[in-house]
Design a protein around this nucleic acid. Structure first.
Lengths: 332, 332
DNA sequence: CTGAAAGCGCTAACAG
DNA sequence: CTGTTAGCGCTTTCAG
């Protein structure tokens, strides 16, 4: 900047204003400055600019697992929304580890990101993480997982409705012994389980505790959980799985056991990950509109980041949508 | 910092040094400083620190598509390697768009990232992007895709070897009419095609131009490409697909046409994405060790970032590894 | 419309 | 072991 000012015989300030399209600069001066800037390949230094303006135009995105296609879709849509607004997105992969997540968030705070979107892996009600976040004054939006006791904006589906939708579908397909491979103790896992319970109760079906098994987040967990279900007698005739990777693993186990999907055991997952249609047996699922979640969250965040004072937290619930494919369609 | 210094009756510098574990500070003073720091919930301001040190401890990762499981794996392993070293990773999703990529890289330069890893979507030899990058002096490592004319460090597989390996395997399975669904005109697409050609020539098999069709990067492209192959007569009895998503789409088309995989048409992909084993027909593929690529690239970059002077570019080639599953295993 | 002065929060270099 | 001085590259404020 100094060079440009010197070369053109104007002051630093004139250059600074010209570069930022400030109003009180003559068109002629502006053009000269921009021309010289291009000649010198000059790019304004964001670090210095941030230091004085207090804004970094960085947005943090804290995710439990980038390799889970649901979060990859969210990341893509968040970036697609935020980048045109001038924000760069810093993605932190927490690997479902609450401690690691805490550290990442502290780092993002110290780096003065303008805002954060997080699918938090915290299990506890009110963790140090959210205290630090609130103290920092940095706006943030929760996605996918609700953290009890944290009153921040949220975007996601109502997981009990999702669980109910899936379970109702299995009932409608004629299943009577419906099992659930449940997820971990985060809000999505709890909510889906609750929806499953609620639906069976309302339908007057007795809930058997041994039909509810823990499946973790991924396909290996789903595979192992299904092996346990396959020990039972009578066998379940339908399984609602925490998510699509878990369901894919479960299907693998069922097929290896020589049983038919969906004829003997119908299976449904959740998330509608993009390859669901390409699996061994095209997978029925409940769609969560991952890209819509990302978009809405980005919108809420960008409002909060540009607002003078913190806007009221808002909760946006995306309605879950049933997608029936072969894995649960009974041809009775 | 000023507050801490004031509260403790020491100078700013003492605090600054204590916080950074500088050697010439007494243990006692350091402890007092750290204690007060915790009490005040103070976090050093990275922006200010970067301004004076010239280092941001940000690393850019420029990828064509986060939703492609190969790149998601690379991103995960890069982050896992770099974060313990104190770097935060900024991921830019270029959506296979060379212009968008150019803009992203400029932004990363202006933000003064300490280094970059890129799987570039540039088609041309020497684009403005790499000129800007070289001018900036920021170290960078190319992964997955070689850019002709750019002499930077590189980590990836030799794509012609990959293509040869896949094609040889199909030959060994008894296929005689081997088609190729090729990728776009980036180095990976060209290299795999070349390996396919080379192998067929050496085996004395005539290459039919109509057996080489364009499939783009993803499953829809693979599906459409396979539909075109299915018009041909005689039908191919083996297809080497650019990557696993393309292969998954191709399998879908074959099955819908009522043909058997692998009995009538054997299929092999590349990349060994993590769900390959869960597809309709478990997919044979060539593994590229995505996480190793990420790790090695991160290692090369971190060396370059901490070196005084730019180290010599290095090229690391990961050997491709054949993974045979049902989609190509002929039970003759 | 243009410019001068002051300072953002921190650290490098050097002096005590 | 501790402190002083100067300045990173930019913008904000206010005066011409």
């Amino acid at each position: 900047m100094k060079d440009i000012a010197h070369d053109l015989g104007v002051s630093l300030m004139t250059v600074s204003k010209a570069l930022r399209n400030h109003s009180d600069i003559s068109q002629q001066t502006r053009d000269r400055v921009l021309k010289r800037m291009r000649e010198l390949n000059y790019q304004p230094d964001w670090v210095a600019r941030s230091m004085v303006t207090g804004r970094t135009y960085l947005a943090g995105l804290v995710l439990p697992d980038l390799m889970h296609s649901f979060f990859a879709e969210v990341a893509t849509s968040v970036a697609r929304k935020l980048q045109p607004l001038g924000y760069e997105v810093v993605i932190s992969n927490t690997e479902e580890n609450a401690r690691l997540e805490q550290r990442h968030v502290e780092v993002l705070i110290a780096r003065k990101v303008d805002g954060m979107i997080l699918a938090s892996a915290q299990h506890q009600k009110k963790s140090a993480l959210f205290e630090a976040l609130d103290r920092s004054g940095i706006p943030y939006v929760l996605i996918d997982r609700v953290i009890p006791g944290v009153s921040a904006s949220y975007v996601g589906v109502k997981d009990d409705d999702l669980g109910a939708l899936a379970t109702e579908h299995l009932l409608a397909q004629g299943c009577r012994r419906i099992a659930h491979i449940r997820g971990p103790a985060v809000s999505t896992g709890r909510g889906r389980l609750q929806g499953y319970r609620r639906t069976l109760e309302r339908a007057g079906v007795k809930i058997k505790p041994e039909y509810i098994v823990e499946g973790d987040f991924g396909d290996t967990g789903g595979y192992r959980a299904m092996l346990r279900l396959l020990q039972l007698s009578p066998l379940p005739d339908g399984v609602f799985c925490y998510n699509d990777p878990v369901a894919a693993g479960a299907i693998k186990a069922v097929l290896e056991a020589g049983l038919q999907v969906p004829e003997q055991i119908a299976i449904i997952g959740a998330g509608n990950v993009h390859y669901s249609d390409l699996l061994r047996i095209p997978l029925s699922t409940v769609d969560q509109s991952s890209s819509v979640i990302g978009e809405r969250a980005a919108e809420l965040l960008s409002e909060a980041m540009s607002a003078k004072k913190r806007p009221e937290p808002r909760r946006i619930f995306i309605p879950p949508r049933l997608v029936v494919r072969d894995s649960s369609r009974r041809t009775r």
